[in-house]
Design a protein around this nucleic acid. Structure first.
Lengths: 179, 179
DNA sequence: ATCAGCATGTAAGGCGTTACATGATTCA
DNA sequence: TGAATCATGTAACGCCTTACATGCTGAT
């Protein structure tokens, strides 16, 4: 596996569940995963090829039943081992690149109204995403007996809790700036 | 300014305050800014050169009073305008790359103990950083009368509030996983 | 008939990191 | 004297995004 290419782990993790095509993987990434990770086709397809060569994933017989070729990948034993090894690794990189905070930090070069506006924009965005996460949450609560769903549930509650903290901060900060 | 190179804005923002060398800028980035943005020498020095060519920053007479050359940069009017324009832009990209959440999401392929361990590692890290932020906060509270400090204060409280939400989530999640 | 969605992939190019190269100063 | 810090910069390389190229299928 490429040393620092984290997209590999996303793919391995998804394949641990079921066989998927690159297109399917992209859909998952654009779904609930997008809240903490991103990935484009331009990174997914090359990663799949690389990992196939390394024996981490295996191309399944392409389903030509109808129309265009469709290449589903399957996790190999080696791939599963790599995934498990990564989970146990005690080193993680958690990176935040919050342009909103950058604008906040340098807000002093402009009127307070500009910062207030930026906080409002952030707030709007968070509110919308919070609604989505709440829908995810209530759907997951119905199926929490299945082990995997517990993990999805935890990532969702992580999102909800932090977004709610963000919103409280927004209210408080706008008040402070309007004084 | 390079279209998508956000390090430029960090530099511009810092120079809005005072003239700085690349080395100084790095120190600021490694200070309180590191909580929401990162940057290495390999990105700072080239960015400074580019922005000088674009007339956004100006090289001050190098201070050769003692030893090695020391190049301080000064923000030009054009640079200040670019900074202000960016602050007013209503488009932001806030990106999270949380490997901890990725591991959490795929936790189902391993024992619960592995996920619990990963949450504990995250918790430790957050606790440590929270302490640092609290020190920043109490220092800033003493000098809140100065306008700029208000903005720094807001970024710090953002960090504290979210980190505290993280910690609550950690406690709750560990409990859930131990059931 | 047309458009959105399904499906795979490549090419160009930007951004950023790590490691290296170099050398002075300060402090123990 | 040796280590840490100050200070600037380059080179190699990796990761990723955007845009492009291609073409089928199903619904309206």
């Amino acid at each position: 596996m490429a040393k620092d290419r984290k997209i590999d782990l996303v793919i391995l993790g998804l394949l641990a569940h079921e066989d998927l095509t690159g297109y399917d993987i992209k859909k998952y990434i654009d779904g609930s995963i997008r809240f903490f990770w991103k990935g484009s086709f331009g990174s997914i397809y090359p990663a799949l090829s690389d990992m196939e060569m390394q024996g981490l994933v295996k191309r399944k017989k392409s389903d030509n039943s109808g129309g265009r070729e469709k290449i589903a990948y399957h996790l190999t034993k080696k791939g599963e081992d790599a995934l498990k090894a990564w989970l146990k690794e005690e080193k993680v990189s958690n990176e935040l690149k919050y342009e909103t905070l950058l604008k906040l930090y340098f807000g002093g070069v402009e009127d307070r109204s500009v910062t207030i506006r930026n906080i409002e924009l952030f707030e709007e965005n968070i509110k919308q995403n919070l609604e989505i996460l709440k829908v995810y949450k209530s759907n997951l609560e119905k199926v929490l007996d299945e082990e995997d769903h517990l993990y999805y549930y935890l990532t969702v509650t992580f999102g909800i809790d932090t977004y709610e903290a963000y919103l409280k901060w927004c209210t408080k900060s706008k008040k402070l700036l309007k004084k």
